[in-house]
Design a protein around this nucleic acid. Structure first.
Lengths: 266, 266
DNA sequence: ACCGTTTGTCCGAAATATCGGACGTTATTC
DNA sequence: GAATAACGTCCGATATTTCGGACAAACGGT
């Protein structure tokens, strides 16, 4: 077997079965299936999906067949594993084109990633989590797998500090789940430093963070604001921490210009 | 109402109901729903979707609610219309990243679109139709709406001439539905000219077409070939027909270089 | 202001899709 | 090479989801 074998993630079937009986609608099982694939982000064997989503095996086989036929899913490798199919890309592209801000952001992100040569992203909030919506790898491309659509705690990111800057300190601390201040390596982000970052961000109109999620990475982010001045999204660079200060200043100016162009109603 | 009102497309419910009774599984209704949205490529009212897909109204409302909750769909405008939601983008991105050739093609297409400044695309065959998989608008950006995932007759395109160049003349004419030689404006593409285009393409390793689908547009395409020499995809530019010959030569060279880099096993 | 049309919700009935388990086949382990 | 585990398919029963139609509210044209 090429993938790491049996995964032990007992979190996927949260709401797989909520009522009393184990029986569920096909569509609900399909939604659980797709969410599971997205969270694993790798081709997965059908039996594993069935187990991890709490779906009966026979049902899962039946549904997967249907979805493969519709090209929502694709059989991968020898066979035995499935992953997303081309139909998802088509529908996803339709979504991107249908949202004005995202369509414009795509142009900006592609442009600055190409000209600067570093990975650029466009991010928003979804609920109380931070989310990468667009990702354009730079020439370096040291991070291969996309994080698009993966929810991340707000304090882990530079953009997160901008996306909550319309709230008061109290509101912010009530808004963000306390556990989200703990980084993947176990370090805890001090709340007062976090709030100070946000305060500074409001005047500087950009945020820089270093060695947060990843020890050797710096994030630079600028806010996209609605006419009321509220940060509705961010555009950012993800660069090696040893990037020179001058280069970073250029990037910050680039980000501010792009963010300005993206801010609606100007 | 902002859209053209009631649409009269009696083709969407092809296989909406195939058996005898009108009853169908939820998942099949959802697949029909998504395909319908993709073919319309615009936010659509729920009742219209129900009618055009042959789904009972009450069923469609039920399903749409479920899908909106899962963020597969989004309510648009005031309300009343639905379209694809962010989840489709996330799943679609996962698909793009999971296919090696497409992941590489994304880099190439973005790069040449940025440097040349014209719209670049990456295309393949799906069944007997041509299909845009990636589309990166140039600076001009005169065509806004994406055609990603929309099936187009092979003879209408420059890329199509490359994608069938491994077949004999007979095979090609058997492969392409006869109606596909008729352009949107009613003109008919002569089969011998079409075959001659393909023959020339094989030696030149690129194709140029002008004023085919669109009177003022020229397409330039180069083949991505597998180790056996078979064209498995194309990379192309879509430019105004009055682009100078010198500029077009530069683009052809650019395409050939990119196509070469994308061709597996070299 | 009137009236016809459309929207969105609710309900009971019944057609059927989901489920569990069994079975033959293929892969993996020792 | 035998034993064990996993894979994928099939089948009948029943719990459930789909469906049609009815209804109130909102809309829109005259």
């Amino acid at each position: 077997m090429k993938s790491g074998g049996v995964a032990e993630k007992p979190m996927a079937e949260k709401q797989a079965e909520e009522k009393s009986t184990g029986r569920a609608r096909g569509i609900d099982r399909v939604i659980a299936l797709m969410e599971h694939l997205h969270s694993r982000r790798a081709p997965t064997r059908i039996a594993d999906i069935a187990r991890d989503t709490g779906t009966p095996r026979s049902t899962m086989y039946e549904l997967v067949n249907t979805l493969v036929e519709a090209r929502w899913l694709e059989l991968r490798d020898g066979d035995g594993t499935v992953y997303f199919g081309p139909a998802m890309h088509y529908y996803g592209s339709d979504y991107l084109d249908s949202v004005d801000l995202i369509r414009k952001a795509r142009v900006e992100v592609a442009h600055i990633a190409e000209t600067v040569g570093e990975t650029a992203q466009f991010c928003t909030l979804e609920g109380d989590k931070y989310l990468v919506v667009l990702n354009e790898p730079g020439r370096r491309m040291f991070r291969i797998s996309s994080e698009i659509g993966i929810k991340v705690p707000i304090p882990w990111t530079a953009s997160g500090r901008l996306l909550v800057d319309h709230m008061s300190a109290d509101e912010i601390l009530r808004f963000i789940p306390p556990d989200d201040f703990v980084l993947p390596d176990g370090r805890r982000i001090a709340q007062d430093e976090f709030l100070e970052d946000i305060r500074r961000a409001r005047t500087q109109e950009y945020v820089r963070t270093t060695a947060l999620v990843d020890r050797f990475t710096t994030c630079l982010a600028a806010p996209v604001r609605d006419p009321a001045g509220r940060c509705i999204a961010t555009i950012c660079f993800v660069v090696p921490a040893d990037t020179t200060e001058e280069a970073q200043q250029v990037m910050i100016d680039t980000l501010k210009a792009s963010a300005e162009r993206l801010s609606p109603g100007r």
